[in-house]
Design a protein around this nucleic acid. Sequence first.
RNA 1: GCGCCCAUAGCUCAGCUGGAUAGAGCGUCAGCCUCCGGAGCUGAAGGUCGUAGGUUCGAAUCCUACUGGGCGCACCA
Length: 654
Amino acid sequence: MILEQITEQLTETLTSRVLTLFGHAVDRIVLQAPPRLAMGDLATPLCLELAKALKRKPRELAEAMVSGLQLPMFVQSVTVEGAGYLNFRFDRGAFTAAHISNVMAPGAATGERVIVEHTNINPNKAAHIGHLRNAVLGDTYVRCMKWLGHRVETQNYIDDTGVQVADVVVAFQHLEPKSLAEVRAMTEDPSVRFDYYCWDVYSKMAAYYAENPEAQQWRRDTLHAIEKHEGDTFEFASTIARAIVKRHIATMLRLGITYDLLPKESDIIALHFWDRAFELLKSSGAVIQETEGKHKDCWVMKLDESAEFEGMNEPDKILVRSNGTVTYTGKDIAYQLWKFGLLDRTFNFRKFSTYDDGHILWETTSGEGDSNAPRFGGAQKVVNVIDVRQSYLQKVVKEGVRQLGHAREAENSIHYSYEMVALTPATAKALGIDVSEEDSKKPYIEMSGRKGLGVKADDLIDALQSKAAESVREGSKREGLTDADVDQLGREIAVAALRYFMLKYGRNKVIAFDFNEALTFEGDSGPYLQYSTVRVENIFRKMAERGVESKLDPASLDALTLNEGLTDEMWELVRLSAELPSAIRRATDALELSIITHDLFVLAQKFNSFYHKYPILNEKDPAERQRRAVCADVFRQTMRATLGLLGIPVPERM
RNA sequence: GCGCCCAUAGCUCAGCUGGAUAGAGCGUCAGCCUCCGGAGCUGAAGGUCGUAGGUUCGAAUCCUACUGGGCGCACCA
């Protein structure tokens, strides 16, 4: 916050000075921390850029800029260094005193309504680690956006009438027949892990289709029956979908991931969202019916003239099949329009469940709604967290919104794309999966629900949890810990390890999943951040226990005292802490949350180094102890707040 | 074939809109617990930033071509 203010003021000052001195207008000024602390706290290569335009030597320009330059508050000095950089140094004490009461202060409310859609797992099988990447990215993004002051609504779309659910229905009706009552009993039996059970059922069904292609008629009939509510097929599908969605919600809750609303595809159909969207698309000419060629009788969106789709063999996208049924993309356009409040109708809502903290999870319904439901939808910005492989579909959705004349909403339709989580051949073999000779040469193997190939989310969390609990038991400081405490710690550490693992890679990197890497609690990991935080909390706890004066009340902070003795190591903790808010802004703008984990890791490293070098509890000089304690406190506050944004809990001890 | 993405230390990755001497983690080697908790700290070794051109005062970063790998290009989602 304070750093952002300084940067803003310096930008203004420098811009106007360049204008008055040289009559030159600059449109942006790069101000960043120089590579080494000795070079100062902020620097700009401004004069190097100016040199060319003004045909003068950079250092000469720099000298002219510097003399008599009015410096903002907290900036103590400016020097010319290197080839002509302007380097600014802060008043460390004053900055620290101002920062400590302002660490990670949340942004003011912006009033902007943002819908974030994430998770979106087909409700026909257990969640796997690829789904975890999606949910962790989405949830962390939501937490950051809320911190920045936006009003965020989290939606988890349920495709309860799609092919994948239909295939499980087909399996229960044909492959290993079970009555609706039997299936329902299974979903209510706590000893059955229904999502795991369906994982196998689904892959068996897929294998059966491969062997018996004629069986695909079952799928078509089932899809039709679901859509038309014929017999008990719709009941079958919704029973299965509902039971599995509950499992997914429970799995994600283990990681602290929650939702506000579950929009269901069946309701989009029942409430005729598509029919309305279709009318709009037809009347605007965005879709037309082909009368010849291979798309004869289909309604398609013509995209061959759009620059976005240039060069594609077959850019046109079919929204309505020749048999009159709607594709997923068609429904998705209708859903997207609703999210922006551009469809002249809405869902009804009812409670799905209530989280322990009282937060209500709502679902859509085409039946009677709850009049107490909040108003969902109608956002200014919509962010869809979806795998990069669906980029084309997301572009079509965006284009559909644009062709209906909603240019601004199209621009604010953001596809938060990320690469898949794949398995290394070694991991796949370790899971007992048959790996073909060809596949074992690849760097990684794509997971496939169809083939039943993947690591289930709950299995990974279980493995992390038991490994973490084991480490706690082996730890030296576990006296007085009950079994319940150990379990609790194991859970918290597992969450940290997993969420950090999913966030630390850039979103365009394929994660080739490796158990050893995911299970690491050392070095660049979530537990390292937790451990560092537990350490700093311990210091303050012990100070309180032993009655050591820590003098942290703002009134007693003396900027000069601080300034005199703040070493580079101490100052670096403060400055890195002050840089985090802008890092979070950059991270959300670029949809690159790894920036946050990286910066936080660097900060924790600095702290651990500081920790070993500067004891606090045993420091006899009160002024020196206070300086150290202030820096430790800055770190403590930063970690508490930022780990919260990452969804990583801070344990009592480890 | 067309489009998107990836290529940086032995391995896994950072490197923010082009800026100062390219950095971490893991692994390897050498050290550090009578001292706030060793899931930690200190140090060492380890690099032609895939290749070749180009733009620029300045390129891992931007442009072009190429090489290797991945993913898309359904009347599936």
